[in-house]
Computed example of a mutant assay.
Amino acid sequence: MIDRLTSSWPLPMPPGAEPPNPPLSVWPTGQRDPLAQLRDAGCVPGTETDTERIPPAVAAHAIATYARPGDLVLDPDCGAGTVLVEALRAGRHALGLTARTRWWAVARANVTAAKTVGAWRDGSVLDARPKVLATVRAAGLIGRVGLVLTTLRTAPDRANGPDRDPVESALADLATTLLYCEPLLRSGGHVAVIAPLRQHPDGALVDLTTPLIAAGTSAGLAPVERCIALTAGLRGNRLVTHASLAERRGGARARAAGAPTALTAHHEVLVFQLAHDAELAAAAATGAAWPTEDEVIRPAVNGVEYPGWRRAA
């Protein structure tokens, strides 16, 4: 996988238009601390208790980069709804799913709050698991989602079994979710997975990149970009972490035990496209010939065949 897109810009440009500067692979999304970001976004009280949420600044950067105005942004496991808020604030439609009643109530309140202060796009939160996306209830979404933006969430309220790690369970769930989401992407759409760093007891980082890439490719997606979303502020030539008190105490305990542990300062971001879109971009970059419309037929997904060139724009 490459760290940059093969094309100069991830969104299709109008004829004759000059593309802007390519997006940075390091996103300066940690200039404000987490609580300040929630206040800036107008999120309701209780949003901060979703410790696995996508930070509003990270969500806003991803949406501005990979979704066009008027696009539909989908978070299939939306938690407290920070992605939905930022999508609405940016003039995109938003749809979130969550099976946890607690987060459903907070996410709905966040959508309502965003609309109250002027967001006019459609925003909805469904009390459902991602598997509903593979049913007839989601038929109207096929080929219409511009950006799937989600994160790796563990499920502390669900038994993972004595021999199964919660992170492994979360990765397996995400792989299935991406499979459900793939048919919903429009041509040129993107999937962005935000993965907070996780550490082993000895302080070493858990390798999430490899299984996340495997999850995307198994769902028929092609990895096109790998970025770093800073959660620490840039102060000149150094990073200032916004670690919580619990994280700082954990680091102090690790140092006292002789196992120094660094505070995390970024999230991993993996960006995917439909496999045929990525192949188109690579062919355009190299000047290679590409099959005609009649020759391009996507393989069946969830039992349905789609002509790759006839997806909704």
Rank of each mutant, 00 (worst) to 15 (best):
G70A: 08
W290D: 09
A105I: 07
A90R: 02
A80W: 01
T51I: 14
L184P: 01
R249C: 01
A281W: 07
E279M: 06
P183R: 08
V58I: 14
P162L: 13
A219L: 05
G203H: 13
A41H: 06
R121G: 11
G233L: 01
T261S: 11
L152I: 14
I63M: 04
S218W: 06
T177L: 01
I54P: 02
R144F: 07
R68V: 06
V296F: 04
R253W: 05
G216D: 07
A256N: 10
P14W: 04
V269R: 00
G287S: 09
Y66N: 00
L74R: 00
A275I: 10
V167E: 07
L230W: 02
P28H: 08
L95G: 03
V301F: 01
V167K: 02
A252E: 15
I2Y: 12
P20T: 11
L230A: 13
T261Q: 11
R121D: 12
P211K: 02
T135G: 14
R238N: 07
G79H: 04
L178E: 03
L174E: 07
G220F: 00
P14L: 11
H266K: 04
A87L: 06
S187M: 08
C227Y: 05
V136K: 13
L274Y: 01
P130D: 08
R100M: 14
Y306L: 15
L274C: 02
P201Q: 08
G123T: 10
L197E: 12
R153D: 13
T217L: 02
D294I: 09
Y306Q: 14
A214L: 11
D207N: 15
R238E: 11
A57N: 10
G251E: 05
V145M: 02
A80M: 01
F272H: 01
A222R: 10
A17V: 10
N110D: 08
L263K: 07
T98A: 14
R53D: 00
Q31L: 01
S187E: 12
G96Q: 01
A113G: 05
I194G: 00
A109C: 06
S169W: 05
G258W: 09
P201Y: 09
D127N: 09
L11S: 04
H266V: 08
L88D: 03
A288R: 12
